[in-house]
Amino acid sequence: MSSASVVRSLVDKYPTGQVFTYDDLKCDKAAAAIELSRLYKKGAIQKLTRGRFYKAAQGTFGPIRPTEEAIIQAYQKAGQGYETGIMAYNRLGLTTQIPSVIEIATTMEPRTIMIGNTKIKLVRQRQSPKKSNVQLLQILDALRQIKKIPDTTPSEVLINIKGIITLLSDIEKKELSKLTLDFTPRTRALIGAILEELDCKKYTDAIKQSLNTTTTFRLGIKESVLKYGREWKIV
């Protein structure tokens, strides 16, 4: 079978609307580039952005673009990234607002991309995600941006996040305590106070040692919301 035939065979296996790249085809990259270019010119596949293609279903007004979910998944996979920002906070139940911009934390170069009416903002991630720790990273991102989450207050965000962390396994709480060390001091202090309140003080020593004892974090948080907030200099 020729290289072109191999590429066409691999492309045929993709369902309509799923985004794929040269690397996804797992064959000779030069051969893939030549044949995908040929298929694109013939209209057999569509180009999403440079190096990203899809087979389009035909609608009344021409080829139908992939769904937002498919586009997000393509960029997450390419940059080993994860969804963050308001969309992620909405999925966590922290805000009811639906964003106009989709943010993806990724290893790729930070930039904003327009795909049709969808604006995707690639932001630099702090940790390489695994499937098992994406939610933990999203929790930490939310605490880092606690003052910027719309349609809510820092106190409401903390109450909701405490509820989410309560449901985590002991292993996940331990992982959360490790991940937070790469985040801002305020984020570290918030996680430390939450874990202590949830009787997970055994995971807070490294967090406490990483903080400057003279630094105070002003969020307007009452003791009724965060029991050990004052001990972690959160006021």
Results as ranks from 00 to 15, higher is better:
I194P: 11
Q145D: 15
L137V: 05
R52V: 09
V123P: 04
L158C: 11
T16V: 15
T112H: 10
G43P: 04
F183H: 10
S9K: 13
I149Q: 05
L136Y: 01
Y22R: 00
A70V: 08
D170C: 06
K201E: 13
Y75M: 10
A31D: 02
L10P: 10
K41T: 03
F20E: 05
S210H: 03
A206H: 01
A32M: 06
V6S: 01
G93S: 08
R111M: 12
S5V: 02
E197W: 02
L179N: 12
Y89S: 12
T96E: 06
Y40R: 13
I71R: 08
F217Q: 05
D141R: 05
G116H: 00
D199Q: 10
K174M: 13
N212T: 06
E103P: 07
D23A: 15
T107L: 14
L179T: 00
L25I: 06
A105F: 13
R218C: 01
Q46F: 11
L122Y: 02
T215L: 08
I45Y: 00
K29A: 08
A70D: 14
S2H: 02
I139H: 12
K119C: 00
S5Q: 08
S155C: 07
E103R: 09
A206F: 01
V19P: 10
A88S: 14
M114K: 14
L94K: 08
S37C: 08
I102K: 05
I45Q: 06
D12Q: 14
P154R: 15
T187H: 00
I207Y: 01
I120A: 09
T84G: 01
L136Q: 10
V235I: 12
D151M: 14
I165H: 01
K131C: 02
K131S: 15
I164P: 08
T49Q: 05
